[in-house]
Design a protein around this nucleic acid. Sequence first.
RNA 1: GGGCGAUUAGCUCAGGGGUAGAGCGCCACGUUGACAUCGUGGAGGUCGGUGGUUCGAAACCACCAUCGCCCACCA
Length: 918
Amino acid sequence: MEKSYQPEQIEQRLYAWWEENGWFAPRGDGDPYCIVIPPPNVTGVLHMGHAFQDTIMDALTRYQRMQGSRTLWQPGTDHAGIATQMVVERLLGAEGTSRRELGREAFVERVWQWKEASGGRIGEQLRRLGASVDWSRDRFTMDKGLSDAVKEVFVRLYDEGLIYRGKRLVNWDPVLHTALSDLEVLSADEDAHLWHFRYPLASGDGHVTVATTRPETMLGDTAVAVHPDDERYADLVGQDVVLPIVGRRIPIIADDYVESEFGSGCVKITPGHDFNDYEIGERHGLPVINILTDDAALNDEVPEAYRGLDRFDAREKIIAEFDSLGLLEKTEPYVRKTPRSDRSGAIVEPYLTDQWYVRIEPLAKPAIEAVEDGRIRFVPENWSKTYFEWMYNIQDWCISRQLWWGHRIPAWYDADGKVYVGRSEAEVRERHAFGDAVELRQDEDVLDTWFSSALWPFSTLGWPDRTRSLREFYPGAVLVTGFDIIFFWVARMIMMGLKFMGDVPFREVYIHGLIRDQDGQKMSKSKGNVLDPLDLIDGVNLDTLLEKRTTGLMQDHLKPAIEKATRAQFPDGIQAYGCDALRFTFAALATTGRDIRFDLGRIEGYRNFCNKLWNAARYVLMNTESIGEGTGEPSAADLWIRARLDLTIEAVHRHIGQYRLDLAAQALYEFTWHEFCDWYLELSKPVLRDDAATAAEQLGTRRTLVEVLESLLRLLHPLMPFITEEIWQQVAPRAGVEGETIMLQPFPQVAAGADYGTAEADIEWVKAFILGVRQIRGEMDIPPGKALPVIMQHATDADEDRAARFAMLLEQVGRVASIATLEADAEPPASATALMGELRLLVPMAGLIDVAAERVRLGKQRDKVAADLAKADAKLGNEKFVNNAPPEVVTQERARKAEFERNLAQLDEQLAKLAELD
RNA sequence: GGGCGAUUAGCUCAGGGGUAGAGCGCCACGUUGACAUCGUGGAGGUCGGUGGUUCGAAACCACCAUCGCCCACCA
């Protein structure tokens, strides 16, 4: 083995070997366990969030596989309609052409080419992360089978009346020229203005004032509204105003929606371009006038001077015209929630179009119940609140998109515009007995990407065919995802799963936090703070990192700041930490909170942890080359480490069962480093080196070394698959374990009925003894190599017995030169002191120890003990405590008090002796 | 406006009605035959504030402050 751990030399080799052997596929006859991957965008790149999520899923998958489950981690990618179309359109733009120039067919062909060219990247990245997905089942949302599933669902929902087509206001993206669902619109506060316009009364007698943030929409106004109880306007209701510029007479109506307190208490109503106004219009039978084109320019419904103007140019012109007419009362600065398209960033327009909708309430109801009655459990539990909140107020889902890349809506129109829905044109013709003479034209639109994603848990398993996979792996065990797509995806999968499979798609939903940068900022290209998980695995030099962060930026002016920040944070680029270190870091960070700050310091620590494990294995292998047959005669240390291993195994099972990978990682780290390496390996050295140890004793220790390590590797494997496999290949034969790969070995279980006797207490005593001596040594600045004589005073028979039995350990691990016993009443030489209960360890000072330093050291200890004693005294002096606290707590407190008193007396005695030396 | 979350060591974070923890960083000593990507020892916190419940609160409750997120139709 190399002297230090070199991840780059093992990871890719091992992954290829696992994959070639088909070990990721479901196997055996255990209980099925299935996780479907949240499909990343096929043309995208995995980011830190993916890597984090994939680490969690892979850890769960590997754990279950080792537990003997018939395990499937289902991989795949998403066609990601808008996102992918935009990417390809940008490419075309760079080539000097465009989507429209190419035409639909050629464009879609071009996107497929792009998908083929770039789609392999996700797979390669997943492989580098060690993801044990079953590649033989890789799926893409636009595969034939998944497309069939989409059509099937569409047709069935339509036939049931749960999908309908309607002309309504939708969120319109005037840049992308498509409708958006509510979820794809993000509103944020932006500085704006509130313009107060006067609308003259038709009676010629005065005016009303309306306030608006959208002056241009006044061209489509069809009423003015006031609150029914607003006395100021009571006598105006029913009268008309004359809409300036347009000249249209529109009524003044009364509606509860109006807030009398706001502005003048008088609202212009534009049913064609505002969601609230649309509803008011419906209540009052107002005409709906659409004044915009697809580009959000003004159309022919407006006075000639305004036709063809962009909405924002029109706004300026309207304001100017009102001003010149003397009808602009005032202009106020105002903060407005501005709705923008998630994808294009354009301000979204409410726009009247024909779209397809899913009638969602009938689907939502069972989906709410499934979480209410516990058939689906959110982890952490409180995310169910977020889910309910949305589901109770859910709106019909607009599923049509005016894009070219996606699942084309399976609907056809005849010459009269009558719509027919079917799985194919042939099916439509057959269903309706259309002859060849009947012309049918397919709907131009495609479906929202999330429509196909909603079917993912069953479409990937072969639905609508009733496949074996579907029977075996539906429902899945757990969905692992971020809270940002609970509405987009999780809720919709639950609805569709219940509707079409008659059962929930998964039993649990594990919601993890979002990975942020070291300052808590969201990672994004434009902030220039993105980390590529592969750069953490392979390392990256500064120039390459700068290049990656500054090319392809949407806004070039951000470049200098990004470059500066990157140089400051990574003056030497990023080191290669290896996949296992990255995975362990993710696991350790997988806490229950919302946000996770990715701290580079931690990955370095876990890289060191890998190295620690590597070197512990080297030590074990060095000492087990000639291991013989049999179990030998285990020492107290051997039994102790096995007992500690059992506790660790139990903890890891418990934590993984509760999705607490952070706690599992912590338990594993603690055991590996601080118990196995710090103590057990050290305690094994005297046995293996000492010629006085019998062959049976040495064998017992060698066996324990190799067996505990072998178990530990299996225990670590779900989190660190590569290094554990690499080491295991060498360790397993020596541990007498057969098997081709660690990934198919059983996960460790607690040794049933193990009896470790007094080994644990013995070794804890040994540790306390050594720690006492080390403390003196450390604080007196005595070199670690210097062996010290130790005198025991107030030793019980048990102490003397242990000192004799473990003399070798104390001498070699504790660097103790000699152990002598002193009678209780004898006068010891001037010494430094360590306390172990009654037992007093004395290290004679002659030539070694500075009296003043020892006095300071004991003084600090004394202060601490005195403070503890005072607290214990106060507690026990409190009658209420003694009477009300549980008896065992009181007993414990009394014991503590006694201990403190004893220690205090001893320390005082020692301090007095030191005083005599002055 | 409604909802959720966070506040613990210099930093990143666990924990949890009775003794305050880890990693990193820091200080000191040290290359002993697994490991300097290391070893040993140490320093460092009145657990955001105020009140309440309790024999006992950092933990439970209420309110407050600060920060963050999600949802929502005051133009």
